[in-house]
Amino acid sequence: MYIIHARLLNVLNDEPLDSVDHHVAAVMLRHISELSDLSIGELADACAISKSTLSKFVRRLGFEDYVDFKLEARRQREKEIYIRDKKTINITDYLQQQGRDAYLVALNDDIRLLFDGANDAVITHLVHDIHRFPKIAAFGEGYSETACLNLQIKMSYYQKFIYTTRNDIVQTDYIERADADTLILVISNSGRFVSSYAHREGAPEKSCFDRSRARVYLITSNPSMKEDPRIFECILLRYSHDVQNHPVLFQLLIEQIALCYQKVYGFPQERP
């Protein structure tokens, strides 16, 4: 998901329905494909606000000024492709091209790979660290962040409270400031979340993990990330087909983590 789109959705989710920011974000999303062509005056008129109010809003979104915002909007006009080398295919396109039965075979094969026990030792290590670390966070982008939210809900049943946010600016700040008492679980199919801002122009390098003191676990399908010095341990996903089943597999992996935690530590209500 592109940066502007994601940040506007964050505003819709976080701000009161009757707030100016919520209104402006809603208008921008309705005109998302036109933003790069609109002057600051035209967009301000469309939002029924002043140009100065609009300037302040785009700065709160994390852009230097309206020119910077428009440059990012221009990049957003192209259709996003998750894997840029095009060696894989998303679930929707696979269903359209291959049909339901072929997809169910592919999904079943990938689920079997997920549950084959190859990651059991690392999941157990992660569960022990979740139990003992005083501060825990989980971060990702797009589908990955939905899995972080699932983990947050799941682990609350065991009285383990995990911080997460869809806001990429807040994510970066949290990672950079994290101390040695912090555990961070990153969910990133490609692993790029650790090293670059994949949805910004030129995919600039991300340095917050270099400065972080947190213990970082990574869920990824990129085996080369096991050698990254910023990563403590990797939980690796494997695929039997070219379809991008990671949105489904992420959720099932969260279930595996919760199941392991329950086996080791039980429910709080059941403890003596």
Rank of each mutant, 00 (worst) to 15 (best):
H5I: 01
L8K: 12
L9V: 05
N10P: 00
N10W: 02
N13T: 10
N13V: 06
N13G: 12
A25Y: 10
L29E: 07
H31V: 03
E34T: 14
L35T: 09
S36N: 08
S39D: 04
I40T: 02
G41E: 07
E42R: 15
L43S: 12
T53N: 00
S55W: 03
F63N: 00
E64D: 13
Y66P: 02
D68L: 02
L71P: 00
E72D: 05
A73V: 00
Q76G: 15
K79F: 09
K79I: 15
K86D: 06
L95D: 01
Y103W: 13
D110I: 02
L113Y: 00
D116R: 08
N119V: 00
D120F: 00
A121R: 13
L126K: 04
L126P: 02
H128F: 06
K135G: 01
I136C: 11
E141R: 13
L151P: 04
Q152P: 10
K160T: 09
Y163E: 10
D168Q: 12
V170S: 15
V186G: 02
S196N: 06
E201Y: 14
A203I: 01
K206T: 05
S212D: 12
L218A: 03
S221D: 01
N222Q: 14
D228E: 04
C234P: 03
I235T: 08
L236N: 11
D242W: 03
V243R: 04
Q244D: 04
F250A: 05
Q262C: 03
Y265D: 04
F267P: 04
Q269H: 10
R271M: 07
